[in-house]
């Protein structure tokens, strides 16, 4: 039975993403305990210099014009072909916008089980257990991973990227792309980066962040006044941005921005895993939420179970508003 681990490395325009290093780190820990190795699959076009920086035991490099920008179909075909060929014990894929297109499709086509949204992968009583974060982060599911093949899709930020010490890869192997890459039904036509914003929340020292608990666009004024009194900027969870109440540049989280302010005051934000991904490293997190079980309290330093409007008004009074 093969015991090595295959990691799908994620890169965008020649830049490895942090989550890739996190995955390689956890894969190396798991492989070391079994005396096996870690393969990293790098997909791209003209990325051989990048391949040399990947801290795996063996870097599998596949280059093809269809892999220049991320193409979900190309990535899926490539990973599937490599998994069939090398028959790894585990395949680790980042649970990102790119990885989500690939993990479930490849697992389904191979007929291998998939555990998605993994936040922990640990040996417990001689058995490997992958823990998945479900129901908006309110419930965890422990899933036994046997000695058979499995695909795990792993949350960004769940593991330290330092574990993947930048040791040069022992070997780089160039792979021939599967023939399917010449007959794809999906084309990547462009990549667009956001325009510069009026306020850069990633540089803000203090943030007042509001979520769906704020209820209406008109109530944003309260958050703005409070932010002004505190010398902070206003940021938000995704639903407020989707509703058009605030610009995309104010969104904190997985698909938004990662922030690390000295103060993050969260009002009416539940703390879904996708939101926590963007703010869990803030120096001081104070959360106000009327649900005592809200997952935001798992990362907050101080919590208040209350109506956000009552607390915001009381703060505002003291700030002389």
């Amino acid at each position: 039975m093969a015991e090595h681990i295959l990691v799908l490395a994620e890169q965008l325009e020649g830049q490895l993403t942090d989550v890739t290093l996190e995955l390689i780190g956890v894969a190396r820990r798991l492989a070391a305990s079994r005396g096996s190795g870690v393969d990293a699959l790098v997909l791209g076009d003209g990325v051989s210099s990048l391949a040399a920086t990947v801290p795996a035991d063996r870097t599998l490099l596949m280059e093809h014009p269809a892999l220049r920008l991320f193409n979900p179909e190309a990535a899926q075909r490539a990973l599937e072909a490599v998994a069939r060929e090398t028959s790894p014990w585990l395949v680790l894929v980042p649970n990102t916008s790119l990885g989500m297109d690939v993990a479930a499709a490849v697992a389904t086509r191979l007929g291998w089980p998939l555990v998605a949204y993994c936040q922990a992968i640990e040996e417990r009583d001689g058995q490997l257990v992958a823990t998945s974060q479900l129901f908006g982060g309110k419930i965890l599911a422990d899933c036994p991973v046997g000695t058979d093949h499995a695909v795990l899709s792993v949350l960004a930020g769940a593991f330290s990227s330092e574990a993947a010490a930048p040791e040069p890869p022992a070997r780089i192997e160039r792979l021939t792309p599967p023939a399917e890459l010449d007959a794809l039904r999906v084309r990547a036509t462009g990549l667009e980066r956001p325009e510069a914003a009026d306020v850069d929340i990633t540089r803000a020292e203090k943030i007042v962040a509001v979520g769906r608990g704020i209820e209406s666009k008109d109530n944003l004024e309260l958050a703005e006044e409070l932010a002004e009194g505190l010398g902070a900027v206003v940021a938000a969870s995704r639903p407020l941005v989707d509703a058009g109440w605030l610009p995309r540049s104010r969104q904190v989280g997985k698909s938004g921005l990662k922030v690390k302010p000295r103060l993050y005051l969260a009002l009416g934000i539940s703390g879904a895993p996708e939101h926590l991904e963007g703010m869990r490293d803030a120096e001081l997190i104070i959360a106000v939420n009327k649900d005592p079980k809200a997952p935001i309290f798992d990362v907050a330093h101080y919590g208040v179970v209350a109506d956000l409007f009552d607390v915001a008004e009381a703060l505002q009074e003291r700030l002389g508003g």
Partner: peptide, 25 residues
């Protein structure tokens, strides 16, 4: 396929502030 569901262990980090809104503020 799973062996059990559980609530996340309260990280025990958050110190809860209680009292009236003005006490909390």
């Amino acid at each position: 396929k799973l062996s059990r569901l559980r609530a996340p262990e309260a990280a025990g980090r958050a110190e809860m502030l209680t009292g009236s809104p003005s006490d909390v503020a």
